[in-house]
């Protein structure tokens, strides 16, 4: 778990650094969490909470927004995956789920920001810019960034099948 947290922290740093240098904004930390949930059975609740807390700390928003948004997103997607797609080939559906997770994450985050505003916790954001500008870019970047994860997973699956004794 410590290695996972450190890896997530490094990924968050990379995301922040690249955002400063190139202006790229893809939410790689969320993708990291999703891939961990899809491909690993290890404590998804803790993983999503840690990721949410990290995003909260790194952002200028009050703590708690991503702490709620990340677990809700990840668990709703995990639930959808288990309920509807568990017995099918997940390679292509995963992309759809990733895009859906980005969309869900945005919707929940914006809802949480609205809730924080109601509680006078000063969480102002330009939601129009978020929805009409940043969201679309994030969707595209998430699909691009997630491709290597799926590719690597498929490759390791094939290798493990070949290695299986007859």
């Amino acid at each position: 778990m410590i290695i996972f947290i450190l890896a997530a922290l490094v990924l968050l740093m990379i995301q922040g650094g690249l955002s400063q240098a190139f202006g790229l904004t893809g939410n790689t930390v969320l993708l990291f969490g999703l891939s961990a949930i899809f491909y690993s059975k290890k404590n998804p609740l803790t993983i999503s909470l840690v990721l949410g807390l990290m995003m909260d700390l790194a952002s200028g928003l009050p703590d708690g927004i991503f702490l709620v948004a990340a677990p809700v997103t990840i668990f709703s997607l995990k639930s959808a995956l288990n309920r509807f797609f568990s017995k099918r080939d997940q390679r292509y559906i995963e992309f759809l789920l990733v895009l859906a997770s980005v969309l869900t994450f945005y919707l929940i985050s914006i809802s949480m920001i609205g809730l924080f505003n109601l509680l006078n916790l000063s969480a102002y954001v330009n939601w129009k810019r978020l929805i009409f500008d940043k969201l679309w870019l994030d969707l595209v970047l998430s699909a691009i960034f997630y491709y290597p994860v799926v590719w690597y997973h498929n490759r390791t699956l094939k290798l493990s099948r070949h290695a299986r004794p007859v």
Partner: peptide, 20 residues
């Protein structure tokens, strides 16, 4: 957290800027 994250981010940002 800001100390650690800031140092890491600035390092990566500088490296990325140099590469760019």
């Amino acid at each position: 957290f800001f100390e650690v994250y800031g140092a890491g981010t600035s390092f990566i940002s500088n490296s990325a800027a140099k590469t760019k």
